[in-house]
Nucleic acid binder design. Structure first.
Length: 210
DNA sequence: CTCCAGGGGGCCA
DNA sequence: TGGCCCCATGGA
């Protein structure tokens, strides 16, 4: 089954996921999306939401506040997201880079490949987090690969290979659309939860098989 | 009690 | 490169 048809199936069965709209209630959520991408590393999203709420309530959802804030205090705010010492360091390094780069506005003019290389050079930003930031916050047409994507490929009989191979597999077989990639990745995660549940695994397998 | 979330870094062979 | 361990909370 081709990837476009697979997308249609996932969408039909799981519905729109609506991950991370850049604009919500007239506000710019790009920085929050980036923070979320870092905080959600190996962490349940429900826990990330608590940490994000703490940052918002403390008026700390911006890079300058993150930089200024003592590490102990930042760690306390993001505590529910787990790995708080490492993630405190990651958020500070990332925020420093963002401010030093001139903020979100100045990133718009940079090519995606250059941005990706820069993100990957930062301590705490690996391939999935970099691509999530590029896709969901910076709205670049980059396909995000994660453990669920591998599982789906495996279940669908697709030999996707390593991260880069898997990414190229999807990017080369789909229209290079930021909105499509956004929804597709979110649908794969939703499928992964279905697959992870013993009671619905059969349903998940049916979705990816002819 | 165990398992694992919308990973990544460090180390070692 | 590939395998392991570490990081840490909270829900199932």
């Amino acid at each position: 089954m081709d990837l476009a048809a697979l997308y249609q199936r996932l969408y039909w069965h799981l519905g729109p996921q609506g991950w991370w709209p850049v604009q919500k209630r007239g506000r710019d959520h790009r920085f929050e999306i980036m923070v979320g991408a870092i905080l959600t590393q190996n962490t349940a999203w429900t826990n990330v939401e608590k940490a994000l709420a703490n940052l918002r309530l403390s008026a700390a959802m911006n890079p300058k506040q993150i930089i200024k804030m003592p590490s102990k205090r930042l760690a306390a705010l993001i505590r529910p997201a787990g790995y708080f010492n490492q993630k405190t360091k990651k958020l500070k390094i990332f925020s420093h880079w963002l401010v030093k780069s001139g903020g979100l506005r100045s990133l718009k003019s940079l090519p995606t490949s250059q941005l990706r290389t820069k993100l990957l050079s930062l301590w705490g930003i690996g391939p999935e987090t970099a691509d999530s930031i590029l896709l969901y916050a910076l709205e670049r047409p980059v396909f995000v690969v994660d453990a669920y994507t591998r599982r789906l490929c495996s279940a669908a009989g697709i030999d996707a290979g390593d991260y880069g191979s898997c990414q190229r597999y999807f990017e080369s077989r789909l229209p290079r659309s930021r909105k499509l990639f956004n929804e597709y990745h979110a649908l794969i995660v939703a499928w992964g939860k279905l697959y992870g549940n013993k009671k619905t695994r059969g349903e998940a397998l049916n979705l990816v098989r002819a």
